[in-house]
Design a binder for these strands. Structure first.
Lengths: 149, 149
DNA sequence: TTGCTAATCAACAACCATTGTCGGTCGCCG
DNA sequence: CGGCGACCGACAATGGTTGTTGATTAGCAA
């Protein structure tokens, strides 16, 4: 996504006011590769602005997503995650802790035209599910423990 | 998924009772490639059993998914969809009407080990989003109309 | 056939993520 | 400076899903 300064410009151009709340959200998203939920953006923002409301966070995130400045992801982890990375990329998702990591890979999906059968593809999303490094190690230990039991 | 008869056996083996409700759900899932939601399974089942409850449908679907007989999909269409196809395959999803189609493709996702960085992959899901044939045509007409206005 | 027990039902409440509403206040920016 | 958009708090409402309760039904093993 663009820098907070650029987003400030963009919002002004669109007739949207650049409030401290929005700037706060811009800053928390910029360079953030954690794929935060609205809740966690709010939690982070509250440290700076104790009275910022979850509602404001949601609407600002939706505004940004509508402008294409961030991406809204539904990875089946219960709540939407917001990705400040708009480049073409895919995702690794931990089945245990829900961690999401960006994955830069050119996926080859050789779809024959007759398989499309009239379907017009627009975007290809690849999600690799598994266990993140932390959960992998915990899983190993769990297995060891089971083996002894 | 297996045939209703096989599922009947499986349920008995597991100590689960084979009720008319469950059999009705088995039948409606078998060979169904529509990726129905719990709601739509319920709607179909009600035609045969007017008093079958949505709750029963949910719990039976969850039982089947826990046994690996069907697959629960979250494709960002609002509600979970249940896929009676457990083979390795991917999905086409219509951005407009939410239609889901199976896609049999061997996706090549060349992930370098250093990209995994400790992540242990278990499954790769590919979702191609776009417009189904029906919505594609409607979209074309809409564009024509816009061009005239 | 009987009896245990799981399954089901209806009706309802609760959950979670998200959005809407409202009245009142604040403050961005032309 | 002033209009209007944004914000707040507080709350209700949505939609999908799960839990609860108490009564009834019925699968299936003995």
């Amino acid at each position: 996504m663009r820098s907070p300064a650029e987003l400030t410009e963009l919002f002004r151009t669109r007739g949207l006011k650049v409030t401290p709340q929005r700037q706060c959200i811009f800053r928390h998203l910029h360079g953030n590769s954690m794929h935060p939920t609205a809740e966690s953006v709010h939690a982070a923002a509250v440290h700076e602005m104790p009275t910022i409301s979850l509602k404001t966070v949601y609407s600002t995130l939706n505004d940004l997503a509508a402008m294409g400045e961030i991406q809204s992801l539904d990875l089946g982890t219960g709540s939407s995650r917001f990705d400040s990375n708009v480049d073409a990329h895919h995702h690794l998702v931990c089945n245990r802790c829900g961690l999401v990591r960006d994955l830069y890979v050119e996926a080859q999906v050789p779809v024959a035209p007759e398989q499309l059968n009239g379907f017009t593809p627009a975007a290809t999303e690849v999600v690799i599910r598994g266990l993140c490094s932390t959960c992998s190690q915990q899983h190993d230990r769990t297995n060891e423990g089971d083996a002894h039991g």
